[in-house]
Write a protein that binds this DNA or RNA. Structure first.
Lengths: 130, 130
DNA sequence: GGTGGTTTTGACAATCATTATCAATAAGCA
DNA sequence: TGCTTATTGATAATGATTGTCAAAACCACC
């Protein structure tokens, strides 16, 4: 029933490259990194692999303020959010239980069902604050 | 010092068209509406007017999940967030004091300064839930 | 009301990220 | 090994957004 999936070195390369980064990256820049590292991987493949990883839950994605799609290999399993340095990109994974509850409450209080939410905090990390 | 700004019927038309909508709209669709209404306004002008209104605080903007920039004329002054129906676009403005505090705490707990945050809740409104 | 200096507009080209196309390639399996 | 089919990748296509720049409009000021 479920779509069969094959293991290719390309998908593995994207997974690896992503896990070596500790910040959010765009498909474009990840592709550039891979190419710089000598890999002949195609751009479209990087896009497909990232989208796939995101769907499978192996990567998190968010929209940069400029509208670019950014991806990150996350270590925290399950639902969580991010605290991102807007200068250097340093990213910290955070859980936000109070926010989860709040979102639920606000949604149902207004008659909304099936709430999802986008919650990300941007700031300047300790190093970049100086 | 501050840049002088002139009043043109175009800027006014965009302001009006935006305030007549109670949901988030893209520059493209707002331009289409204006054109349909008989206005000969140019697309680039709509983009510029919306960006300008957003900067001046007369409009709020957010990125759709697809990466499009969406705008809305908000009635609630000051900082607030949105509860948006992902089906029909119905939007409710909400304040989120608990979230503001939480964001502050999380940021400083991790050494981050000048926290900003993106908080939006998507769901299905009462009508669309049926 | 007319005038001039500047801002703003708008048609169009240019960018840039992302997606579709589709023939060639490579997984996984009998 | 050979076959079936998912995947790849070069390239074209799409679509939103921004840059360009001459023409038009705005706004004091006369």
């Amino acid at each position: 029933m479920t779509a069969p999936k094959r293991n290719t070195w390309q998908r593995e390369a994207v997974r690896d490259a992503l896990s070596k980064r500790d910040d959010f990256v765009s498909a474009q820049s990840l592709h550039a990194s891979l190419r710089d590292g000598g890999s002949p991987i195609g751009l479209a493949t990087v896009y497909r692999a990232l989208a796939s990883l995101a769907v499978e839950g192996e990567a998190d994605s968010l929209q940069s303020p400029e509208g670019e799609a950014l991806y990150r290999a996350c270590t925290m399993s399950g639902h969580h959010h991010h605290l991102i340095c807007r200068n250097c990109g340093l990213t910290v994974e955070i859980s936000a239980d109070p926010v989860e509850e709040w979102a639920q409450q606000v949604a149902s209080a207004n008659g909304f069902t099936e709430p999802q939410h986008v919650v990300d905090v941007f700031g300047l990390c300790a190093s970049c604050s100086r």
